[in-house]
Design a protein around this nucleic acid. Structure first.
Lengths: 135, 135
DNA sequence: CCATATCGTCAAGAAAGTTGACTACCTTGT
DNA sequence: ACAAGGTAGTCAACTTTCTTGACGATATGG
């Protein structure tokens, strides 16, 4: 994680914190997200989620628009710059995984991934675990 | 980590946070520790380390005594209750590892451990990584 | 169409860390 | 021996990040 953010900083995305990454991840798969949904995904309150969204909006990674079907809500989505940042993260992770493959071999790396998936699925009962950058 | 602390709570150790665990770990291997040493181990300032020590002292897990060789310093060590808690943690981890072994097999679990050790050693340059419960 | 639930917001505050300055003590080189 | 600089702990002020609680506006379901 630290290495990804070092990479991002050199690519001009030095103003995103690790916690923001989890918002990005959620927005990559939910085109019209809400603050409540993001909060649940991260395991934080909606107020804290709004604060993250505010920061990302101010920095141009995210935008709020009227929600298409719910006039209480605001539809949150990535801007062009947000998507650029996501692409950078994907590329950085790919680099890191390639390096891992050279260290322990692609076969072992694949098994490592599968085993970790098995263990986390078992301890969380199969449901998705709220991701938090904090214990 | 969450499961260990659930186990601890049912065993009467409900007043320790995850961050405290890293202090316990350090004290298990350093009989006369100092606040600065603990701070370096966790990657936090000495002031923050002192605060953790204060909490653990108030709750009876840790005690401060005059340092044997340095009159500026205070020697920090686990009390009997502190050691009881450590034993509980060790037992809880052993339970969890046994469960992991049944899930993916002892052989794969051993390789998982070795591979993770290889990867972390490579990315940290071999030096110990300061442990933090926070990104 | 009314009761209840949900989305976002405002405000206050708690948790856990940081920075900076200070005293007391240690250590090292001359 | 001792001056000079480094280190351990402490005090105080502050920052960051998250929480709790209350609220208006809108949605939804019997």
């Amino acid at each position: 994680m630290d290495r990804v953010h070092e990479q991002l900083a050199t690519a001009g995305f030095g103003d995103v914190r690790p916690a923001h990454g989890f918002v990005f991840q959620y927005l990559s798969f939910h085109k019209t997200a809400t603050a409540v949904g993001i909060g649940e995904h991260l395991g934080i309150t909606k107020q804290a989620a709004v604060q993250l969204i505010d920061e990302l909006t101010k920095r141009g990674y995210v935008e709020r628009r009227p929600h298409p079907t719910d006039r209480r809500a605001r539809a949150i989505s990535l801007t062009a710059r947000g998507w650029e940042c996501v692409e950078r993260v994907v590329a950085a992770w790919a680099d890191i995984e390639r390096e891992w493959a050279t260290l322990i071999g692609p076969d072992r790396l694949g098994k490592l991934h599968d085993d970790l998936a098995t263990l986390t699925a078992a301890t969380s009962g199969g449901r998705p675990v709220p991701l938090r950058p904090l214990w």
